[in-house]
Nucleic acid binder design. Structure first.
Length: 957
RNA sequence: GGGCAAGUGGCGGAAUGGCAGACGCGCACGGUUCAGGUCCGUGUGUCCGAGAGGACGUGGGGGUUCAAGUCCCCCCUUGCCCA
C-alpha cells in the first residue's frame, strides 16, 4: 500500500518482495479488511442482513473449523493447518461466486481453566478470556477471513442460555419407537391418559397400571421416558478428578482420558441422554454423508450394531432370553450363562445341589444359593473391563438347574459367570464352546461338552473354530442346517424360531446412553430445579440463562485416586445461597433446590455451528429462516448441513456423535430443517516435527541443532534424531509467530498448504519454508519491477504458449482448491510463474490479462500479496471479491501432441501428431518413425493398440 | 486379536489403468556479489557407459491386462481406531 523508496545498502533491489515489505503489506491490509468489513457475510434476513443484495443470487457455502479450546500455550505451527485449509477454501469459493460463511469461535468451558483456577484462585473466565484474546490476535495475523461479528465463546451467557434451552428441549421430549423419532413429552402424557399408549416396559411400578398411579408416581413414569433422564446405574466414578465420566472419556485401560486417574464402576444417580434411541439412525445416515470411509467406520464401530436373534429357553417355569449373533450354532449350545447381576438369578437358583453335582460347578459351596452369593460378591469387585479381558481364567458357578435347548431338547446346565455382562444384549448367552473362544475356555475349566456345528478345515487342531465352513451336526426331525453356509443357516434357523415362538431376529448396539452430568464448576448449569417431591422440573425459558454463580472454591471434592467408595460432591453444592431458590412455576411461589451438577464439556460444541448463522439472536436459538438458508437440504432427501467441516480425527466418535444426536433431536422436534449437522467432513493431518536428544537421552532445543555430513550436532556434540508430536517437552515447538516474523504470513500460509493434501500428516521443516518465500518473490517480480517499483503489466496480447500455460494452471488450481489438494494448486501456480519469468524477462511488459490472472489464482493462498498487487494493477476493490479465473477450453488442448510409442509396453520413441489424430493416423505416424522402424525390424506385429492423444503400443512376437 | 488407512528419490510429495518421480526442499556446478546463511541459471532415481545409449526401478511374492504405483490375492512393515 505504500511504496518503499529507500536506497539499498546491501545490493538488494529497492522494490523486492522482502520479509520486511511483506510485514508492512500484511499489517496494512489486515487493518483495511477490518475497517471495511471485507469479510462480513450477509444473512438473508435479520440484524446481519446488510449488504445481502450484493450476494442474493449467489449459492451459499458454509465452511468451518472445529473451534479451538483456548489453551494458554497459544498456537504452534500445527494448529493453523486446518484453519488455513478452510480459509483458502472460503476465499476461493467467495471469488468463485458463493455467499460464504466462514466463522470461528471458542470451546471455552473445560478442565484446564478450572484446574488453573483451583491452583491460583483466579476465576476461570479471566484466564479463558485472556487466552481467547491471544489466540484471536494470532489468527488475525495469519490473515484468515473470519466474519468476526459472528465469533462467540461457549462460556458467553448469551450462548449458554441456548445450550440450556436445548437441554430443556431434550428434557421435554421422549422417543416414540413407532415413528422412530422424538416427540414432545406432553404428547406422551396425552396418549397415556387416553389409554392409547402403554408406558414403556419397566417404567411402571410392579403390577400397576397408569390409571391407578398417583400424580407423583405418574411423573416418575413420564420422567423415565424422557430423552434426558436421571438414572441410578453403575457409572464411571473417578475419585482423582472428583467427577463421573462418560464411557467415551474412559480409556481402554480403565483410566480417565484427562489426567489418567483410575476409574471405578459405581452405582450413582446421574443425568443421562438417551442417545441409544438414535443408534440406528446414527448408523444408517452415515451412508448419506460425505465423510471419509475410515471415519464412518469408527462411528459404526463405536455404535457397534450387531444383528442376531433372541432365543428363549425354558428353565424351571421361567424363561431365559439370550441374545446371540450366531443363532445358526444353536444345535451346538451345550449350556447357558447368565451375568451374575441378571434379574432372574435368584428366582432360578435351586435349593439344593442335584445328586452327583460336578465339584467343578459348585465352587465347594453347600448350596447353590451360597455359591451364587459368594460369586456375585466376587464379580462386583471386578471392573467391566477386567471382566472382558481375553485370556483371563474363566470362572463361574452352576445354579443347580437346567434349561431346554428348543432344537435338540437337550438339558443345558445354567451358570452365572462374570464374562457375561448385564449391559450388553439380554445379559445372558447360550454357550457354544465349539465356535466361541470364551465359551470354549469356560467349557474346558468346568468340563462341559462340546458339539461342533461348523466344519473346521482338515488341519484344524485348535479349540473353538470361529472361521467359516459348512454346517454339521445340525438337524432334527423338523429342520436341517447341515451343509448350509452361515448366512443361510442364520436365516433358516431364525425363521424356525419365529414360527415356533422360541425367538426372533433382533439388533443390539454397543452404544450406551450418554452420561451427561459432571461434578465440576466450569460448565453450563442445568436449567433444572427439584421440587418438594425431589422430582426434576425444567426452569422456564423466560428464566434462562441460569447463570453460573460466583464461588470461593472452584474445585470439586477430590479423593485419593483409589478411594472407590467416595461420593461426588460438586462445587456448586457449596454455593448455598444459589442452590435454594423460590420460584413461581405456575403453582405459586415455592421453594426449589437447584441441580448442582454441570453439563459435560461436549455440550457447547454440540450446536455451535447453528449459532454462527444467527449469533446475536436473543429470542430464538436460531432463526429458522437462517438455519434453512445456511444448513437446509438442497433437494428432497438431502441431509443438509455445513458444507465443509474440518477438524482433527480425535473427535471421530465423541463430539461428532454427540452433535449428530442433538441435531437429530432438534430435527425431530421441528427446530431445524437439516437432518445432519455436517454434510462434508475432512480430518486434517497433523504436523509433527523432529526432536533431538543428547547422549543422556534429554531433548535439546531442536532449533539449535545443525546438520553436517548427515550427522546432527548440538553445540558440537552429536545428538540423536527422533520424530514426534510438536510440544514443549520435546523442545521442538515452532510457532506461527516466529515464521511470520521471519517471512510473513503469506509465505507461512503457502508453505503449510504446499506440503501435502490437507488430510495428510507431514513433518515440519523450517529450512524448506524459503521455497515458498522465493515463489511469492517471483510472483511479485512478474508484476512489479524490482528496480523501479513500476507495474510491469502492459497492454500486450499473450502468445499462445503463455495462454496455454495460464489456462492449464487455472484448470489445475481450481481442481486443487475443490479437492483440498492445495499442494498441486501451488505446484501449478509455480509452473506458471516460472514460465512467465522466462518468457518475460525484467524490462519487458507482461500481458496485463496474464498478470492479473496470476494474482487472482494466488489470492486465496497469499491474500495480502494478492491484495497489494491487485491494487497496484489499478483495482479499487478488494481482490477477495474479484471473480476467480475460468479456464477457456480452447487453451486446454494443444494443436499437436507428443505421443509415446511403445514396443511390448516399453517406450521406444516419441512422435508428434495433431491433437485430434485418430488411431489409424497415430499408428501410421509411429510406423514412420525411424527408431520404431528399427525396433520392429524382423519382428511380427501381432497387435497394435493406439489410444488417441496418449500412446501407441506395438505388440510383437 | 479384529477393523480401517498407507508404504514412490536423501526429504515433503506428483501421476482419469497409458511416457513414474510434476512442484518444492536439499545437494552439485556455474553466474551475480567485497562477502554470502542473498539472488539468478543449469543439473540431480539407481547401475553400466567417455558418449550416444542401455539395463533396472513405486515394501515383498503371485495374478489380471496390449499396458499396473494404480485393479485382484497372499505376505511384511507403519499409523489410526476398537478389543
Amino acid at each position: 500500500m505504500s511504496q518503499t523508496t529507500e536506497p539499498t545498502a546491501d545490493g538488494v533491489p529497492p522494490h523486492r518482495y522482502t520479509p520486511a515489505l511483506a510485514q508492512q503489506i500484511e499489517l496494512a491490509w489486515q487493518d483495511r479488511w477490518e475497517a471495511e468489513g471485507t469479510f462480513h457475510t450477509p444473512n438473508p434476513v435479520g440484524p446481519l442482513s446488510e449488504g445481502f443484495d450484493r450476494v442474493a443470487d449467489r449459492p451459499k457455502a458454509f465452511v468451518m473449523d472445529m473451534f479451538p479450546y483456548p489453551s494458554g500455550a497459544g498456537l504452534h505451527v500445527g494448529h493453523p493447518l486446518g484453519y488455513l485449509g478452510t480459509d483458502v477454501t472460503s476465499r476461493f469459493l467467495r471469488m468463485d461466486g458463493r455467499n460464504v460463511l466462514h466463522p470461528m469461535g471458542y470451546d471455552a468451558f473445560g478442565l484446564p481453566a478450572e484446574q488453573f483456577a483451583v491452583q491460583t484462585g483466579q476465576h476461570p473466565r479471566v484466564t479463558t478470556e485472556a487466552n481467547i484474546a491471544a489466540i484471536s490476535a494470532q489468527l488475525r495475523r495469519l490473515g484468515v477471513d473470519h466474519d468476526t461479528r459472528r465469533t462467540f465463546a461457549t462460556i458467553d451467557p448469551g450462548y449458554y442460555k441456548w445450550t440450556q434451552w436445548i437441554f430443556r428441549q431434550v428434557f421435554e421430549a421422549w422417543f416414540d419407537p413407532e415413528t422412530d423419532r422424538a416427540r414432545p413429552i406432553t404428547e406422551l402424557v396425552t396418549e397415556l391418559d387416553a389409554g392409547t399408549r402403554q408406558p414403556a416396559p419397566g417404567t411402571l411400578p410392579e403390577g400397576q397400571s397408569w390409571a391407578e398411579l398417583s400424580p407423583v408416581e405418574r411423573r416418575r413414569v413420564v420422567d423415565a421416558h424422557r430423552l434426558a433422564y436421571r438414572h441410578s446405574a453403575p457409572v464411571n466414578w473417578c475419585p482423582g478428578l472428583g467427577t463421573v465420566l462418560s464411557n467415551e472419556e474412559v480409556t481402554a485401560d480403565g483410566r480417565s482420558e484427562r489426567g489418567n486417574f483410575p476409574v471405578f464402576r459405581r452405582p450413582l444417580t446421574q443425568w443421562m441422554m438417551r442417545i441409544t434411541a438414535y443408534a440406528e439412525r446414527l448408523i444408517d445416515d452415515l451412508d448419506r454423508l460425505d465423510w471419509s470411509d475410515s471415519l464412518k467406520q469408527m462411528q459404526r464401530n463405536w455404535i457397534g450394531r450387531s444383528t442376531g436373534a433372541r432365543v428363549r429357553f425354558p428353565v424351571s417355569g421361567e424363561t431365559v432370553e439370550v441374545f446371540t449373533t450366531r443363532p445358526d450354532t444353536l444345535f451346538g449350545a451345550t449350556y447357558l450363562v447368565l451375568a451374575p447381576e441378571h434379574p432372574l438369578v435368584e428366582a432360578l437358583t435351586a435349593d439344593v445341589w442335584p445328586d452327583g453335582a460336578d465339584p467343578r460347578w459348585t465352587a465347594g459351596a453347600a448350596t447353590p444359593a451360597e455359591a451364587v452369593e459368594a460369586y456375585q460378591l466376587q464379580a462386583s469387585r471386578r471392573s467391566e473391563l477386567e471382566r472382558q479381558t481375553e485370556g483371563r481364567d474363566k470362572t463361574g458357578v452352576w445354579l443347580g438347574v437346567t434349561a431346554t435347548n428348543p432344537l435338540t431338547q437337550r438339558q443345558l446346565p445354567v451358570f452365572i459367570a462374570d464374562y457375561v455382562l448385564t449391559g450388553y444384549g439380554t445379559g445372558a448367552i447360550m454357550a457354544v464352546p465349539g465356535e466361541d473362544t470364551r465359551d470354549w475356555e469356560f467349557a474346558q475349566v468346568l468340563g462341559l461338552p462340546v458339539v461342533r456345528t461348523v466344519q473346521p478345515p482338515a488341519d484344524f487342531d485348535g479349540g473353538a473354530y470361529t472361521g467359516t465352513g459348512p454346517m454339521i451336526n445340525s438337524s432334527n426331525e423338523q429342520l436341517s442346517l447341515d451343509g448350509l453356509d452361515k448366512a443361510t443357516a442364520i436365516a433358516t434357523v431364525t425363521e424356525w424360531l419365529v414360527a415356533n415362538g422360541c425367538g426372533e431376529a433382533t439388533t443390539t448396539y454397543k452404544l450406551r446412553d450418554w452420561l451427561f452430568s459432571r461434578q465440576r464448576y466450569w460448565g453450563e448449569p442445568f436449567p433444572i430445579v427439584y421440587d418438594a417431591d425431589d422430582l426434576p422440573v425444567a426452569v422456564p425459558d423466560s428464566m434462562l440463562p441460569v447463570l453460573l454463580p460466583e464461588v470461593d472454591d472452584y474445585s470439586p471434592k477430590t479423593f485419593a485416586d483409589d478411594d472407590a467408595d467416595s461420593q461426588p460432591e460438586p462445587p456448586l453444592s457449596r454455593a448455598t445461597e444459589w442452590t435454594t431458590v423460590t420460584l413461581d412455576l405456575g403453582e405459586g411461589p415455592q421453594e426449589y433446590r437447584r441441580e448442582t451438577n454441570t453439563m459435560p464439556n461436549w455440550a457447547g460444541s454440540c450446536w455451535y455451528y447453528l449459532r454462527y448463522t444467527d449469533p446475536t439472536n436473543d429470542q430464538q436459538f436460531v432463526d429458522p429462516e437462517l438455519e434453512r438458508y445456511w444448513m437446509g437440504p438442497r433437494e428432497p432427501g438431502d441431509v443438509g448441513g455445513v458444507d465443509l467441516y474440518v477438524g482433527g480425527v480425535e473427535h471421530a466418535v465423541l463430539h461428532l456423535l454427540y452433535a449428530r444426536f442433538w441435531h437429530k433431536v432438534l430435527f425431530d422436534l421441528g427446530h431445524v430443517s437439516s437432518e445432519e449437522p455436517f454434510r462434508r467432513l475432512v480430518n486434517q493431518g497433523y504436523i509433527s516435527a523432529y526432536a533431538y536428544t543428547d547422549s543422556r537421552g534429554f531433548p535439546v532445543p531442536a532449533a539449535d541443532v545443525v546438520e553436517r555430513d548427515g550427522q546432527f550436532l548440538y553445540e558440537g556434540q552429536p545428538v540423536h534424531r527422533e520424530y514426534g508430536k510438536m510440544g514443549k517437552s520435546l523442545k521442538n515447538v515452532v510457532t506461527p509467530d516466529e515464521m511470520i516474523a521471519m517471512y510473513g504470513a503469506d509465505t507461512f500460509r503457502v508453505y503449510e498448504m504446499s506440503t501435502g493434501p490437507l488430510d495428510q500428516s507431514r513433518p515440519w521443516e523450517t529450512k524448506a519454508v524459503v521455497g515458498s518465500a522465493r515463489l511469492l518473490a517471483r510472483i511479485w517480480r512478474v508484476v512489479v519491477d524490482e528496480e523501479t517499483g513500476e507495474v510491469r503489466a502492459g497492454d500486450v496480447e499473450p502468445d499462445d504458449d503463455t495462454s496455454r500455460a495460464l489456462h492449464r494452471a487455472i484448470e489445475a488450481v481450481r481442481d486443487g482448491m475443490t479437492t483440498l489438494r492445495f499442494n498441486i494448486a501451488i505446484a501449478r501456480i509455480t509452473e506458471l510463474t516460472n514460465h512467465l519469468t522466462q518468457a518475460f524477462p525484467p524490462g519487458t511488459a507482461v500481458p496485463r490479462s496474464v498478470a492479473e490472472s496470476l494474482v487472482l489464482l494466488v489470492a486465496p493462498l497469499a491474500p495480502h500479496l494478492a491484495e497489494e498487487l491487485w491494487s497496484r494493477l489499478g483495482h479499487a476493490g478488494s481482490v477477495a471479491w474479484a471473480q476467480f479465473p475460468v479456464a477457456e477450453d480452447r487453451w486446454l488442448v494443444d494443436d499437436t501432441v507428443e505421443v509415446a510409442v511403445q514396443v511390448n509396453g516399453k517406450v521406444r520413441a516419441q512422435v508428434a501428431v495433431p491433437a485430434d489424430a485418430d488411431a489409424a493416423t497415430l499408428e501410421a505416424a509411429a510406423r514412420a518413425d525411424e527408431k520404431v522402424v528399427a525396433q520392429l525390424e524382423g519382428k511380427t506385429v501381432r497387435r497394435v493398440i493406439a489410444v488417441p492423444g496418449r500412446l501407441v503400443n506395438f505388440v510383437v512376437g
